[in-house]
Amino acid sequence: MKLIINNSSMQPIYEQICTQIKNKILSGELKQEEMLPSVRTFAKELRVSALTVKKAYDALEQEGFIVTVHGKGSFVSGVNQELRMEEKRKEVETDLEQAIRKARSCGMTEAEIRELFELILED
């Protein structure tokens, strides 16, 4: 599996792994019940610590994206449509928050931000 790890990013490596695997699952690139690489194999491939990959897999399992079967490996779980939509909503919310912060840092008032938002919605 191809992932891009940015060592100069402020985002921790395990979060980069989580985000990219989530995106592959949500986009359908990784299918339900598809086996993920073993922790050791994936760590070698990514040139990171096995503990980093394990932390990413644990986080993905906690969020319901993967299931780990002791002695067999980690597999993509059945991600339901509701979970997919919730993840997309979170992404949109994050993007909007960043845009609002940027607008405020430029000195825009709340009214100006709302007006701009309404204009964009009309398109």
Rank of each mutant, 00 (worst) to 15 (best):
C18S: 13
Q32N: 11
E115G: 10
L51Q: 11
F75K: 05
R89D: 03
L60Y: 06
R101A: 10
K22V: 07
K72W: 01
G71D: 06
E34T: 00
Q98K: 11
A103P: 08
M10C: 02
P12N: 10
V76H: 10
T41I: 04
S9A: 14
E97G: 03
E86Q: 12
D123Q: 15
L51P: 00
K102L: 13
D95A: 14
K44M: 04
P12S: 13
V53Y: 06
I4W: 02
Y14P: 05
K72V: 11
E45I: 00
P12V: 12
G71R: 05
E115D: 12
L83W: 00
E115F: 07
V76A: 12
Y57L: 02
Q32S: 12
R84C: 10
S105A: 15
E115Y: 06
A56F: 02
S38I: 01
E63W: 00
K44Q: 08
E33F: 14
M85G: 00
Y14Q: 14
V48D: 03
T94R: 12
F75R: 04
E63Q: 13
E15N: 13
V79F: 06
S8V: 10
L83I: 07
L30H: 01
L116N: 12
Q62N: 11
L96A: 09
M1A: 12
K44R: 11
I25G: 02
E63N: 10
L46F: 03
V53P: 05
P12K: 15
I17T: 09
E61I: 00
A56D: 08
C106T: 02
E91H: 10
H70T: 15
I13A: 01
K90R: 13
K24P: 01
Q20H: 06
K88T: 08
Q32G: 02
I13G: 02
L119S: 11
L60W: 09
E115H: 11
P37T: 03
C106E: 14
L116R: 13
R89K: 14
G107M: 08
S27K: 10
G78I: 00
D95M: 14
R40L: 09
G28P: 00
L30A: 03
F42G: 01
A99C: 09
E15D: 14
K55C: 06
I21E: 05
E122L: 09
E122D: 08
E97D: 10
S27G: 12
S38N: 05
I100A: 07
F75L: 03
Q62A: 14
L116V: 09
Y14D: 14
P12W: 02
I5H: 07
S8A: 07
T68E: 12
R114S: 10
S9H: 04
Q11Y: 00
T41F: 00
I17P: 07
R114C: 13
L26P: 01
M35E: 14
F65D: 06
E112R: 11
Y57A: 01
Q11D: 11
I17D: 07
N7K: 11
G64K: 06
Y14I: 01
